[in-house]
Amino acid sequence: MAVQLLVSVRTADEALAALRGGADFIDLKEPRTGALGGLPRAIIRGIVAALREAGSTLPVSATIGDVPLGDLNGILDCVGAVGSCGVDIVKVGIERGPQAFAVLDALAACSHDVVPVFLADQGLDFAAVAHAAGLPLAGVMVDTADKRAGSLFDALPAADLQRFVDTVRAAGQRVGVAGALRVHHLPAVHALAPDFAGFRSAVCNGSRGSALDAARLQALVAVARASAVPTVARFMGGLRVPAVAGLPA
């Protein structure tokens, strides 16, 4: 089965572009305020409304923002507030630390569907990953906090990434990966074979805080949908993008 694409957006216009461009999931976040920066609740509600008015049935997720693990009550308050905005899934960052287990247990008991997102910058605690995989959650993801330090594949060895995917899948959970991923990372993503992969940097014409670029999104989707990534590639605005018929150079 092909890896499904989660595309992160910050406005209704971007969400509709992601819908038209072929995204499988639409993720709401504010990339200018952190790896899992949260959007204002009113904007979340507006984006959800715009997607539903456009007839979209795609799953919509939203992040709660970068809330410290030590603030469990704050995390749960944010989950409730974001979940009440009409999204299907609420994403919560999980840093490495002793509080992770209690936070994961509390998230699993929420009335909203939650996906914990393990932040890989300090390495992964595989006991916590296995614990999350065994809980009634909507999936488990891995991402990076510091996008300036490189991609997910720079943050973790390939063996650790494969162990993460295998651990989550062995428990019957859906598993996702993200972290400054670009089009040229798609072969490595396909080799990991997660259920879904998240993209923001790859679909922006500039920094991940700049606007979503429809042509880049189309190129990403075209390559991801192909059975194999073409070996002949070109550069489009400094981003390595395989040549796709009908897309601008």
Rank of each mutant, 00 (worst) to 15 (best):
A62D: 07
S61C: 06
T11Y: 06
S84Y: 03
R32W: 15
I26A: 04
R10P: 07
G74S: 00
P98L: 01
R52E: 01
V82D: 01
S84W: 02
A62R: 12
A81Y: 07
V82R: 01
A81T: 15
L5E: 10
V7L: 09
A42P: 11
I94C: 08
A15H: 07
L39A: 14
F25Q: 07
V9D: 02
G34S: 03
D88T: 08
L51W: 10
V48L: 01
A49W: 02
I94D: 02
A50I: 04
T57F: 11
V103F: 03
L72P: 04
A17H: 11
A18C: 10
I43E: 13
E95I: 02
D24A: 10
L51Q: 07
I94H: 05
S8Q: 06
D24C: 10
R96F: 03
P40A: 01
A81D: 14
G80H: 03
G21P: 12
I26D: 08
K91H: 08
V48C: 02
E53M: 07
I89F: 12
I47D: 12
D77E: 11
A17G: 13
P59G: 00
G55S: 06
A102M: 11
L16H: 13
Q99D: 13
P40S: 00
R10K: 15
G70N: 03
G46E: 12
G83D: 08
P98Y: 01
K91R: 09
L16N: 12
E14C: 05
I75H: 01
V92H: 04
Q99C: 06
R41V: 13
G80Q: 04
G70C: 02
S84L: 04
L58K: 14
D88N: 14
P40W: 00
P31W: 04
S84I: 04
I64C: 00
A81Q: 15
G37D: 10
A23G: 11
L76K: 02
L19D: 11
A42Q: 15
R45G: 10
R52L: 03
I94N: 09
R32D: 13
E30H: 15
L19Y: 09
V7M: 02
A81P: 13
G37V: 11
R52M: 06
S84E: 15
I26G: 05
P68Y: 03
L5R: 12
A54Y: 02
G55Q: 04
G21M: 12
V48A: 12
G74N: 01
V48D: 04
G86T: 05
T57Q: 14
G83V: 03
P40G: 00
A50E: 02
P40Q: 00
F101S: 09
A50Y: 11
A62I: 05
G37N: 14
V92T: 10
T11A: 01
I26W: 14
A12R: 12
I44S: 14
G86H: 10
G80P: 13
G93P: 01
E53V: 07
I64G: 02
P68A: 00
V87E: 02
A62L: 03
I44L: 13
A18R: 14
I44N: 15
K29T: 13
A23Q: 12
I44K: 13
V90Q: 01
G93K: 07
G74Y: 03
